[in-house]
């Protein structure tokens, strides 16, 4: 109770500085949060696309009935395959024609069907689905009667690479902004300590325990972090709501089951805890520096 009272008195006597410091932390966290927001949504786009990915096994034109039956048996009994379609050459051609009906004159002019027959495989949703598709594709490629396999590997890999890069970028940005926040909080708490130097000296002289002396300042640092996190998360939530209101329609045309996601709860807790830790670290450094002088006496 006394600690809280002292902390509030400390903050009141350095009000402007406290709010400036909380504001800076809010901005730093919001920058990080915005990137996180983008990252989370890109990630969800990736997983949405991931779900759409099918493994298409194109068959050779000269595939024998026996080979086809063997492939069908293998596909239907494979533990990773959820379902599959067989698209004959004729069906593929019909689909193609339907899709490009406006070019029908050109299509009619073609005297032959250039499309191969194929098996379209839907793979069971598991966390390492893409990896399983890759392995299965490699296996299928080797089988007799298979001309080629396709599952959009290149762009998925590129997109995955981008996500990894984004993750590294976020971590680096987070580390850099945290360091900045530690320095800002440390300076604010240092000023708070300086303005109460006489009081702290008196506490030291009169037998105040280190805990008694340091606790209000630790609490002040922690409050910096906590308030910064809460304000920036509120800001992020408003941005999220705005984006959802404005662009949800657009994203639904892109993928029906998709929506703009907010930072998930465990990550929110991580941000708050990390911010509190940053606040504590800031006050720890300035207290360590200040009391260090007295320790040397």
């Amino acid at each position: 109770m006394r600690t809280l009272k002292t902390t509030i008195t400390n903050i009141k006597s350095n009000k402007q500085l406290f709010f400036a410091s909380v504001g800076t932390i809010t901005i730093a966290l919001s920058i990080l949060g915005l990137f996180l927001f983008v990252y989370i949504n890109l990630n969800s786009v990736l997983s949405f696309w991931n779900d759409q990915v099918q493994l298409i096994v194109y068959l050779e034109d000269e595939v024998s009935m026996h080979e086809k039956k063997k492939l069908e048996k293998m596909v239907s009994s494979h533990s990773e395959v959820e379902s599959f379609d067989f698209v004959s050459r004729e069906k593929a051609w019909k689909n193609f024609q339907a899709m490009f009906s406006e070019k029908s004159a050109f299509l009619k002019g073609m005297g032959f069907n250039p499309l191969p027959a194929s098996f379209n495989l839907k793979i069971k949703p598991t966390p390492n689905r893409l990896e399983k598709i890759r392995t299965l594709a490699e296996q299928m490629k080797q089988l007799p009667g298979v001309e080629s396999v396709e599952y959009g590997e290149e762009w998925i890999s590129r997109f995955e690479g981008f996500i990894i890069l984004m993750r590294v970028f976020l971590l680096a940005l987070g580390a850099l902004l945290s360091l900045g926040a530690v320095l800002i909080i440390s300076n604010t708490v240092k000023l708070s300590i300086s303005s109460r130097k006489d009081e702290i000296e008196l506490m030291l002289l009169s037998g105040g325990t280190p805990g008694f002396i340091q606790l209000p300042f630790f609490l002040e640092g922690i409050l910096h972090g906590l308030l910064g996190a809460v304000v920036s998360l509120a800001l992020m939530k408003s941005i999220h709501l705005y984006v959802v209101n404005q662009f949800q329609g657009a994203i639904e045309t892109f993928g029906r089951s998709m929506d703009f996601q907010f930072i998930p709860f465990p990550l929110i807790m991580t941000i708050v805890m990390a911010s509190i830790l940053v606040g504590w670290l800031g006050s720890f450094f300035s207290l360590h520096q200040f009391l260090g002088v007295y320790k040397k006496l």
């Binding site: 030291l204 002289l205 009169s206 037998g207 105040g208 325990t209 280190p210 009391l291 007295y294 320790k295």
Partner: peptide, 14 residues
């Protein structure tokens, strides 16, 4: 030690 000085100082008024 610094962390234990309070015990001494509580016995002394300055």
């Amino acid at each position: 030690k610094f962390n234990r000085l309070w015990k001494l100082r509580r016995k002394i008024g300055v």
